[in-house]
Design a protein around this nucleic acid. Structure first.
Length: 414
RNA sequence: CGGGGUGUGGCGCAGUUGGUAGCGCGCAUCGUUUGGGACGAUGAGGCCAGAGGUUCAAGUCCUCUCACCCCGACCA
């Protein structure tokens, strides 16, 4: 992509109405635009990051048998009344509205009810189970207070998955596979050193649910981590009994602040009973479906990555989620020879399938470097009158650059 | 929802005891520059968040409203 065509421009100064690091950097670099408190638009660069994260999640969900769907954001009052979750006293994040005819509707803040209701059409026999569906949805939550940039918005993108199993054993097998898949996701987006599977409150039917917590001061959760065992306990269930049940020792635990980037939950048969989602067993008798629910906040994950990977100059994206792999910077572009070389380099990257952002703007070198650091693409490649028949490459976050041949660089990156 | 703070060109800010607004960045044109946010000249751009008061006169004083940020509460 030609940077001269990119409509977003970087800003030298942070917006006055954002104190969170993620929002400051993402807005300055042109990844996002703030529409109102807790609602952000995703611009070309930002959308690319979202797409990368979604692809990684999709691959991992597909690998454990997930089937992608897309439910509606508009939801029926009647459906949520069945499970007593329409009431504002039980769920205080509803955005409610009504149709022209007067029917009450809500904007989806979660989708267990509608997905499960829909599944009554498709689940009839034990032979239909297990089945797993997931989606990327824009969720709406009327938070009393949004905060921390894109970490806690009123409108945000979430990957939510729902599992339907014939019994607890079948459910437990899948539940464990989701844990592994989630760990893969967080490792692949670069958070392997930061994310801990965390035991948290389990609600009505299980002792614990599991959260995936990324250690960061920007978070709003408090957890106790055992770094050698790679597990943690949420403050909400932290007590002697919990430690005993989990086989943890108080002296091995460190109290930290963290961001909840994922959550998996065993609903048991409760919701299926309420909604009437049942199937016929091998013996001909009827049974309710065992439901599980699994979420990853996609936009929150993006914000978490920015919180964890930045320096005073800007963002430092992990390779796997960066909007581009290479930031190609052309200097001395009034020199026809250099201009040809840098254009050739751009073509070669493109042909090699390496995503490249080409800074072809007429601008001082310092300005280009500053923008490059702010945007945070992994490889900065400079072509100028000084680089001769080679190119200068520097990784974002490192200070050393090197002169290398373009062909070698391309094969290295691939 | 309780507490605290902030609203002034696109962005970041200043504006004294009330007297019809200024700086930096950015933007436009021209020239000089060209490896870490270059320099000069010229220029465009503002119902001072909104409404209502006080006053000869309000960005400035009073009242209300709205928006945004932070802390807390809340967050299956």
């Amino acid at each position: 992509m030609f940077q001269s065509k990119l409509f977003t421009k970087s800003k030298k100064e942070s917006p006055a109405d954002e104190l969170s690091r993620n929002a400051q950097l993402l807005i300055r670099a042109g990844y996002i635009y703030k529409e109102m408190a807790g609602a952000y638009a995703y611009l070309p660069l930002g959308l690319r990051v979202i797409s990368k994260i979604k692809s990684i999640i999709s691959e991992e969900m597909d690998a454990i048998g997930g089937q992608e769907i897309l439910m509606t954001a508009l939801q029926r009052k009647e459906l949520w009344e069945v499970t007593d979750r329409w009431n504002d006293e039980n769920v205080d994040v509803w955005f409610k509205s009504e149709l022209k005819g007067g029917q009450k509707v809500g904007l989806g803040w979660s989708h267990e009810e509608p997905v499960s209701e829909m599944m009554k059409q498709y689940i009839h026999s034990y032979k239909d189970l297990p089945l797993y569906v997931y989606q990327f949805q824009t969720k709406f939550r009327n938070e009393l207070r949004s905060k921390s940039g894109i970490l806690r918005g009123r409108e945000f993108v979430m990957k939510d998955m729902y599992s339907y199993c014939k019994d607890a054993d079948q459910h437990n097998v899948f539940y464990k596979s989701v844990i592994d898949a989630y760990i893969n996701v967080f490792n692949r987006v670069g958070l392997s050193d930061y994310v801990y599977i965390t035991s948290a409150s389990g609600g009505a039917f299980t002792e614990f649910s599991h959260e995936f917590q990324a250690i960061s001061e920007a978070g709003e959760d408090t957890i106790y981590v055992d770094k050698s065992k790679k597990v943690a306990v949420n403050d909400e269930v932290y007590n002697e009994k919990t430690l005993k049940d989990l086989g943890l020792n108080e002296k091995d635990l460190e109290k930290v602040t963290s961001i909840e980037v994922g959550n998996i939950f065993d609903f048991g048969k409760m919701k299926s009973e309420q909604l009437g989602l049942s199937f016929t067993k091998e013996d001909g008798n009827s049974e309710y479906v065992h439901l599980g629910s699994y979420g990853i906040g996609v936009t929150r994950l993006m914000g978490t990555i920015v919180e964890l990977f930045n320096d005073e100059k800007g963002i430092i994206w992990p390779d796997s989620v960066a909007p581009f792999k290479v930031h190609l910077i052309g200097l001395n572009l009034d020199n026809a020879d250099v201009l040809k070389k840098v254009n050739d380099a751009y073509d070669k990257f493109q042909k090699a399938g390496i995503e490249v952002l080409f800074d072809d703007r007429e601008m001082s070198a310092g300005g280009k470097f500053a923008d490059s650091d702010l945007i945070g693409v992994p490889y900065r490649v400079v072509v100028s009158a000084k680089t001769g028949d080679k190119v200068e490459v520097k990784r974002r976050g490192e200070s050393e650059s090197a002169l290398v041949s373009l062909d070698n660089l391309i094969s290295d990156i691939k």
